[in-house]
Amino acid sequence: MKKSIFGRLLPVVVLVGGASMASTAWAQAGAEMLANTCAGCHGPDGSSNGPATPTIASLSTDYFVMSMKDYKSGKRPSTVMARIAKGYSDDDIAAMAKYFQTKPFQRPGQKVDADKAKAGKALAKKYCESCHEDEGRVGEGVGVLAGQMLPYLQYSMVDFLSLKRETEKRQKAKFDALVKDLGEEAFQPILHYYAGVK
């Protein structure tokens, strides 16, 4: 699989702000303190060891904030995240988003079907790459797909296709085109491909 230098450097380029532990009285907890509460499920600094729980490191702040707010409101379906997201204020969520954006997405590799991944690469280029750039490493307002946990990607796809989770306009157009051209089963090779990106 091609490794883009740009993609590897990007997390460094987007480093912003730091986590401040400083507090006065019993103010809002600092970003790192808040972010540390996620690691038990999402892995140290937000990089998951799998098999299913997604990595949240390196997500764009827009996507992180939107996800947490949608979990909170119930707009986005979840098992446990709605209950957890409700425990954090908008300020907490913004602080956590900033923190995780600066953390690298660790991609030690996961087991995928090599044939599917190969077939998925061409499909991804046609149907996904315009938003999920650089083999899905870039997530400007969208999820980072490269190296994301395969079961999580599959759950997300089920939720999108069953309309439990809202699809954004451009996303919907691409999804509709893929389903029309090749059927719903064509998502699987794409997911195997993205899951296998290192």
Binding site: H42, G43, N49, P51, T53, T79, V80, P151, V158
Partner: peptide
Amino acid sequence: DASEADRKREVQYAQSWFRNITAD
């Protein structure tokens, strides 16, 4: 009243939790 699919997902999330918390 969670769906069977969600109960099944929680098994996978439970297994993930074990791996991640022990790594942490």
